[in-house]
Design a protein around this nucleic acid. Structure first.
Length: 114
RNA sequence: CAGGAAUGUCGGGUGAUUACGUGUUGAGGUUAAACUCAAUCCGAGGAAAGUCCGAACACCACAAACUUCGCAAGAUGUUUGUAAAAAGAAAGUCGCUAACAGCGACCAGGCAUAAGAAUCGGGAGUCGCGGAAUUGGAAAAAUCCAUUCCAUGAUUCCGGAAUCAAAACCUAGGGAUUAGUGCCACAGAGACAAUACUAGUUUGGUCGCAAGGCCUUACGAAACGUGAAAAGUAACAUGAUGUGUCUGUUGGGGUUCUCACAGAUGCUACAUGUUUCGCCUUAUGGUGACAUAAGAGCGCGGAAAACCCUUUCUGGUGUAAGAGCAAAUUUGGUAGCUCGCUAUGACCGGCUUUGCCGGUCUUGAUCCGGCCAGCAAUGGUCGGGCUAGAUAGAUGAUCGCCUCCCCGCGUAAAAAACGGGCAGACAAAAUUCGGCUUACAGACAUUUCCUGGAAC
RNA sequence: GGCCCCAUCGUCUAUCGGUUAGGACGACAGGUUCUCAUCCUGUAAAGUCGGGUUCGACUCCCGGUGGGGUCA
């Protein structure tokens, strides 16, 4: 789990990110990001009801992704806000698959990583 | 022994590394906080779900009374109440509960027919008792024995409409017999005070010169049948009536038919009686729903999960309620005099909007155990325990071990050993409780019920 | 988190407790045409699921499932 510092908690920030951020689309996860003017990177995971109706499934997805980001926090450039949105296909996948997928797309299509 | 149903209980344990959240302690930090680090404790459910009910708690509205503050407008606090109407809800009875559409016990109905009971009819043989006859035997005769027939009782078998008929399970179970309205397709005369309508015939009256018209009485006319349901219900006995079929003849016509009479038998409706069911009254028992018995009177369809009626109950909104702080807009009031004196600022309020904090903090109609009261639901009492409080939302990830279970191997069949899968179902707190409903891998208990197998 | 509504052929829809569940577009088959389109005729195709009330349920009542709206 990420510490509170690294969480994107404010409703306003997320709304502006959705409005003005850049989008990247992977096989399992869609990502939106935007540089902020703080020294820390902040993350949020959004799992919609369309992914699954069961709260258990949605919570598990969120926790898996949170754990991956926590592990690889050193690889991210500081000063970026990121929202990750898993797709329907992501249900039931193992954590390793997620890790590979996410970082593949991030490396190919963005400049967030160091 | 195996399987199923019902009810109840449980819904993995333990360890390591590393994260997250609340609390506590310590250190740092700060005017004080915020915050950072370390240690430690604790960290989802039986349904947390659906949101179908009920309550707690909070606030609001209206009315009345009182209190305090204020110049006033008004505000604060306490207590009491929520009428009528509208709309909605509940209602078998008694009890439990804070309350409920919940729970417990009971009542009624369904299930519901079986087995069986009782009753009726028929058949068969056997046995018992009684009567009659005949032949045979004993014998002079009476009488006795045997055989046959009739009647009756017991036993047994078969059949029959309605009646009685257990446990478990199910029921939004007041009123359709009276406050009323509407509905009951098709079929049928008729679907609730039913006996239609038409042709034709006919009684009486009236109008008309007449033909005939109008009103009216009866026949036509059977209630077979139709239908989910037919004017409470079904059975038996007796009586008399009509009619069909068969048989017979001392009859008439007549020639193989018809009428009449007699007998047997079937059907329809009627009357009377007995019994069963329903309503009613009275008595007895029960707190009561009701039950049982007796009586004489009655003959009234179904559906209220159609509208509706009766009795009883309900002021409204849900922590996104609200409360606090700050700002803005608008508006009301007042004392003082540094400025200003048409106005603005300051202060004290009111309305509205926006933002932030916060949502009372998890000690509760609480949990565990013992005892007592009660058929039970439940209540009382004693002792012990503290068991999540997040706020875009914590309880995660990775790796072991232990059992549970499954598969393979093994074996005549099991067991052990070995190898593999490895807690694997439904499912995540959001103000809090009590129920209901729905989802659910597997394990255990009860021995209550059902089915099958084996043994005695 | 609270509240409200809806579900009928492939699609859009109709329905008084008594039906073979009607219509339009589409689909399929046949006809017309030299061929296609148009046109004509015909055919197939549905009550979201499970219970209850009733003689009888798409309709009335209860519960589930799915979809949508609204407050914030």
């Amino acid at each position: 789990m990420l510490s509170k510092e690294h969480r994107l908690r404010n409703d306003k920030d997320i709304k502006t990110l959705f409005a003005k951020g850049k989008g990247v689309f992977g096989l399992l996860v869609n990502i939106k990001y935007r540089p902020n003017h703080i020294l820390v990177s902040r993350f949020a995971v959004v799992v919609g009801t369309k992914v699954s109706k069961k709260a258990v499934v949605r919570n598990r997805l969120r926790r898996q992704i949170n754990e991956i980001i926590f592990k690889r926090l050193k690889d991210f450039r500081p000063g970026v806000d990121v929202v990750l949105m898993p797709k329907k296909e992501a249900v039931g996948k193992k954590s390793i698959e997620f890790e590979e997928e996410i970082f593949k797309t991030l490396k190919q299509k963005t400049r967030i990583l160091i």
